[in-house]
Design a protein around this nucleic acid. Structure first.
Lengths: 336, 336
DNA sequence: CTGTTAGCGCATTCAC
DNA sequence: GTGAATGCGCTAACAG
């Protein structure tokens, strides 16, 4: 059943049917009504493929994520999808996982498929130089968590970034520790090359510096591996450091760390206080309950989607280029 | 840059270019080589939209899930995506969340978009009668976790189901409890209408019956709400039941339950033993560590994708209709 | 083996 | 206001 069928039934040309559907004001009310009735009866709806081929718009957005295994990303994805589907867009997911080799393939595919825009997250895990690729893509992009080279390479119009406010979140956590009297603070970070990591590290350092302290105990793990948080904490514990507090750069790492401390027979927060980052749903259900910096991943996803839709609406002439930071919130529970 | 450009550069007709790409054996090696070289140089790749419009195949699969917020589903999604992208397919996600009204829209969209197949999970949350819709869809479908009405309505060819082996998993859990001497066993289930719930309940009952026992303490929550597990356990605790063991039908519920018991100042497993279901990554990091029935969600997703691809390969004449159960495994940690 | 042609389903000129 | 014709980029007959 296609537009021709409808046109025949209504006794008009396909052009009129098309207009009735897309530019109703251009067709006489009577004919329009007649057409619309038949459209409803037959449950007709134009073939998006044909439409896209003609217009160049697919009403599809690509979500490019490192993985869905990290609850943070799946929450983000959910936020995006909800907002996009509301706007009539379809969401395609591409997870580039460990395999750096897949990344080229993914972007090729995205271009081939003519998606209307891209939401990219976890870009820190992308191979070096991918930013060039993005620049050349010529479709709107929203990057969640910034591009690693953002500070060195200028970004073209139509690319926006949205971040949780790392600095502020980190400051709140570290200041809380200081205020509680902690002087030796350890850090469990994820992948060191990620801009997010660097930003949080820098923020931690600056707060400490203000207090006349330095950051002496830093350990790296992976943001998607609880186990790496566990091992990181063990390393911290085994060093000759005398830390009384540890700030983990996400909740997965924090939960791993928490387990390590407890397994050593130490108390939390008595011997070691812990604060995480993200506030994943399960953070409120660890024992003791995890204190953490709340990052509204769902809302961030929705926000990213809305920014992208704006870019798309600007047509080709996307002149905007925003960079927003979402405020974080410190949630004190039982680990500090 | 389109097929015409390539044809011009190679001094052949567009048909030959098309053939060189799709049916290489039909074109003379020399011309083919010449064409392919230009194709490579210009990084040409046929427009999938045009191709799809003509062939009816989009190389796109729809993932229809209730939510991505439950780690079980995001793991599943990840497994699907990995397998599908390997096969050159793009994965679109549609989460129908709470809103039952969206479900009709989703399926309409899926049809309009001409996806090649559907992977549907959490179907228990779909509105009644949706099975009719699936039957009429005329494309391959793989349902993860069965269709609710599967036992009453026969399913058309081209629809397959894949399940974790609930019965076996449940039996293992309950038998373990019995063997440890527990006689009063409580159940925290998710949504009662889901086939999966009913199957697990039935399995629990039958094991208990063999031992001359009955199932007296059942409470319902929601599979995506930790909090509902917490409250469920509270209800169980407040009843006059003298349970010493509780089987929660997924890990989220179990973790909620665990917290409830501990908050009451009771010991786990001393006062109440707990076993969960799924074995989400964080299950190994609760305190005490959660014992649970392991369900390889990632592999199930990959398996589902492979089954779907097989169906798609069978062309229209899909005559198959499988129903497989993936064996579960009991993982004993510290809560029982 | 290769070129010409006809559509896939639709939006959009341009006439009327 | 409406219809006839054009073409989006491509594959699949059909000829040669």
């Amino acid at each position: 059943m296609d537009i021709k069928t409808i046109a025949a039934k209504a006794g008009v040309s396909i052009a009129t049917v098309s207009r009735a559907l897309n530019k109703p004001e251009m067709v006489r009310p009577q004919t329009r009504a007649r057409i619309m009735q038949i459209v409803d009866e037959m449950q007709y709806s134009p073939n998006p493929l044909a439409k896209s081929l003609l217009t160049g718009r697919t009403y599809t957005v690509a979500l490019v994520f490192p993985t869905l295994r990290n609850p943070y990303f799946s929450q983000l994805a959910e936020g995006c999808e909800a907002e996009l589907s509301n706007a009539g867009y379809t969401t395609s997911i591409f997870s580039f996982e460990e395999e750096i080799s897949k990344q080229r393939t993914i972007f090729n595919n995205i271009i081939r498929r003519h998606v209307d825009g891209i939401i990219l997250a976890g870009s820190g895990s992308l191979q070096a130089g991918y930013q060039q690729i993005l620049e050349g893509l010529n479709i709107p992009i929203v990057v969640v968590e910034d591009m690693p080279d953002l500070d060195t390479i200028p970004v073209r119009a139509g690319i926006s970034c949205i971040n949780i406010d790392d600095r502020q979140g980190t400051q709140m956590a570290i200041k809380y520790f200081l205020q509680k009297g902690h002087r030796e603070i350890g850090i469990i970070a994820g992948e060191g090359q990620m801009l997010l990591t660097r930003r949080r590290l820098e923020a931690a350092r600056s707060v400490l510096k203000e207090a006349g302290l330095t950051l002496n105990h830093i350990v790296n793990g992976s943001y998607i591996s609880v186990e790496s948080g566990y091992r990181g904490m063990l390393r911290l514990l085994d060093s000759d450091a005398r830390m009384t507090a540890v700030f983990a750069f996400n909740d997965l790492l924090a939960i791993g760390a928490l387990n390590a401390v407890l397994d050593r027979g130490l108390q939390v927060p008595g011997d070691v206080a812990i604060i995480g980052f993200d506030d994943i749903p399960l953070a409120a259900y660890t024992r003791p309950r995890l204190s953490t910096v709340h990052s509204p991943s769902n809302e961030i996803g929705a926000y990213a989607a809305r920014m992208l839709l704006e870019h798309i609406a600007e047509e080709k002439a996307a002149s905007t280029r925003r960079r927003v930071f979402i405020p974080a919130k410190l949630v004190i529970r039982e680990t500090c």
